Amino acid sequence: MAHIIVVGNEKGGAGKSTVSMHVATALSRMGHRVGVLDLDLRQKSFARYMANRRATMERHGLDLPTPKYRDLPEIEKSALTPGENVYDRRLSQAVAGLEVDSDFIVIDCPGSHTRLSQVAHTLADTLVTPLNDSFVDFDLLAHIDGETGKILGPSVYSEMVWNARQLRAQAGLAPIDWVVVRNRLGAQAMINKEKMGHALDELAKRIGFRTAPGFNERVIFRELFPRGLTLLDLRDVGVLGQMNISNVAARQELRDLVKALKLPGVEVTF
């Protein structure tokens, strides 16, 4: 069966689609068969990223290693069993279709609570939660006392992950490997950065996740999206001149992230 990587949280702007695209493309470049799904049926940032990539390849005659994208299928209500949710069927059918010839399936979730996102979390072998290095985003995971810094309790998102873990356990499935990815880390060891680190370390022990370094804020990510490209494509599209120190550092960040995910059968070779 394919190893399912779900990229999710319940907040927009944390870099989910950027992480999804770079991880999926990195796996494709390393020779793995990768299928991808976008569960944000309204904004479809990940789907747009993939469409931009196809357009760039067609326009310039390129053949870049690319994951296989699939839209969720439409389901006739008459095909549903009594009490069955249409979104459950759409997701399960899409996953089943990709599993036939995929080693990994990357699922990008919306930045809000939806039925699709909830069900996707129960399918996750690896759950990646990108988080901006801010206590605004930390509130997604847990509530904290503003004066003492003491963690008061888990947030609704952490509770959803807990419920997903319980459902997997009841079904006899392996536990979710939950990885919280710290995006947009400051270049300097600022007080806020240190406080975030301590808070995450404490929370990780309480609710069971690992932390991994993500991407710093870089102009290159905003420039890549309209062309559907990733950091690993720059040499192939003839833009060696763009491999400045910042972009080389960003490539190393991607390498570190993929290593930190500890995906089965993956040896990082880029």
Results as ranks from 00 to 15, higher is better:
48 R>S: 14
174 A>K: 12
118 Q>A: 15
103 D>M: 03
11 K>Y: 07
74 E>D: 14
65 P>H: 03
251 R>L: 15
262 K>S: 14
40 D>L: 07
1 M>V: 09
57 M>A: 11
103 D>Y: 04
230 T>V: 11
51 A>Q: 15
111 G>R: 12
208 G>A: 04
170 Q>R: 13
206 R>P: 01
171 A>M: 11
190 M>E: 15
228 G>A: 07
229 L>Q: 02
135 F>K: 03
268 V>E: 08
234 L>Y: 06
268 V>C: 04
38 D>I: 10
130 P>T: 01
234 L>C: 08
93 Q>N: 11
29 R>T: 02
78 S>M: 10
177 D>E: 11
178 W>L: 01
187 A>N: 13
20 S>W: 00
153 G>L: 04
126 T>Q: 03
235 R>Y: 05
192 N>G: 11
93 Q>P: 00
48 R>I: 06
91 L>T: 11
26 A>K: 01
126 T>K: 03
116 L>E: 06
139 D>C: 13
218 R>E: 10
20 S>V: 00
216 N>V: 06
152 L>P: 02
163 N>K: 15
117 S>P: 00
98 L>P: 05
124 A>K: 00
74 E>I: 12
153 G>R: 06
225 F>K: 13
81 T>C: 04
135 F>A: 07
235 R>P: 02
143 H>P: 01
69 Y>E: 08
128 V>C: 03
147 E>G: 08
76 E>A: 11
152 L>M: 14
201 D>Y: 09
162 W>E: 10
239 V>P: 00
60 H>L: 12
57 M>E: 14
3 H>T: 10
97 G>F: 02
62 L>R: 10
22 H>T: 01
10 E>M: 13
97 G>C: 05
229 L>S: 03
135 F>N: 05
172 G>C: 12
38 D>S: 13
121 H>D: 08
92 S>R: 15
12 G>K: 09
221 F>P: 00
221 F>A: 00
31 G>E: 06
240 L>Q: 13
62 L>T: 09
183 N>G: 04
189 A>P: 14
265 G>Y: 10
80 L>F: 11
252 Q>W: 07
229 L>M: 09
21 M>Y: 03
256 D>P: 01
243 M>L: 15
170 Q>E: 13
214 G>N: 03
56 T>N: 13
67 P>D: 09
116 L>D: 02
213 P>F: 02
53 R>W: 02
257 L>G: 00
